[in-house]
């Protein structure tokens, strides 16, 4: 009996393949479309197939411009300052979103009372609030961090709420049948059950923190990736402008890749079908 059932255990299918071949295959699959796109771009730009060639530099020129920025050190300074803003806004956003989300999800009355206001706030476009943030927090670092905080808040908050609310009632019943009190129930059942939802929210928030950065850096910044992009556009240094766009794309992609990976690793107990 036991022997028969042991066969039903799911074995990780990736274990069987040759790891080198598997890795190469994955890299090829992941980069194919991007490489083709870059080649088409390069050829189209070299052949000057667009009306204003100056606005459409070839990929190699963009890479050279970026290398120039890197050598001069501007690139790293801009990345650093931007990441600091994003991380600060993201971190503070989590500090607000997670406890608030847990409270709203767990205390039904509190949730019902607060929800209408949340719906109104959530549907305000962050960009529409830029002038308000400038008025309240000036044009320094604070207002940039606050804009990011605001934009990031909702994804984690709403996911945390739905995580707490979607805890399987059978699990609560099981825990309660063992005499579990409210505090322990929250810590040992509600929180772990909500954790994957919270993490998904955090992952989206982290990506959004990079996206919103650009908007934040439109407000009187004099450093940062978004600032540099606008600066070079204004000065018709188009390859450099594209260079910074590429850097932002790389940072955003890398971030969500890493976070997705951590998410998969941390929640081995979840069904494949259950993960969002």
């Amino acid at each position: 009996m036991t022997k028969k059932e042991k066969k039903e255990i799911i074995i990780d299918p990736t274990q069987k393949q040759n790891p080198v071949i598997a890795a190469l295959k994955r890299i090829f699959m992941a980069s194919f479309a991007i490489v083709v796109f870059l080649i088409i771009w390069e050829v189209a730009a070299r052949l000057e197939l667009v009306s204003v060639p100056a606005f459409f530099p070839p990929v190699t020129k963009i890479a050279a411009a970026l290398a120039d920025e890197a050598v001069k050190g501007y690139l790293w300074k801009n990345i650093l300052i931007s990441l600091r803003r994003s991380l600060l806004g993201f971190g503070l956003g989590l500090l607000v979103a997670i406890p608030l989300g847990l409270a709203i999800g767990w205390f039904k009355l509190f949730g019902d009372l607060v929800n209408p206001l949340l719906q109104v706030f959530r549907n305000l476009p962050t960009l529409a609030l830029l002038p308000v943030f400038v008025m309240f927090f000036g044009i320094g670092e604070l207002s940039k961090v606050m804009v990011i905080l605001w934009g990031v808040l909702w994804y984690t908050l709403l996911n945390t709420i739905s995580g707490v609310r979607s805890v399987d009632p059978q699990l609560i019943k099981a825990a309660r049948s063992m005499g579990t009190g409210s505090l322990r129930l929250f810590g040992t059942v509600v929180l772990p059950a909500a954790l994957p939802f919270i993490f998904t929210g955090m992952r989206i928030s982290a990506t959004v923190s990079i996206l919103i950065l650009i908007a934040a850096e439109m407000m009187g910044a004099n450093r940062g990736l978004g600032y540099a992009m606008f600066f070079y556009q204004g000065n018709f240094l188009i390859p450099k402008m594209f260079g910074y766009i590429v850097v932002m794309a790389i940072i955003g992609t890398a971030l969500s890749f890493v976070l997705e990976h951590i998410e998969k690793r941390s929640f081995r107990w979840r069904d494949e079908t259950g993960s969002t």
Binding site: D168, Q170, L171, K173, A174, A175, R176, S177, M178, G179, T180, R184, T188, V189, P192, A193, L195, F267, W269, R270, D271
Partner: peptide, 30 residues
């Protein structure tokens, strides 16, 4: 509810984030 009664449900209701061992330990933690 109290630990003098053990309740076993149709849907198992195991804590999916706990291993077999840690599931069995739950009542003992309480």
């Amino acid at each position: 509810p109290a630990l003098d009664r053990g309740f076993i449900m149709q849907g198992y209701a195991l804590f999916p984030w706990r291993t077999v061992q840690r599931n069995i330990e739950y009542g003992l933690e309480v």
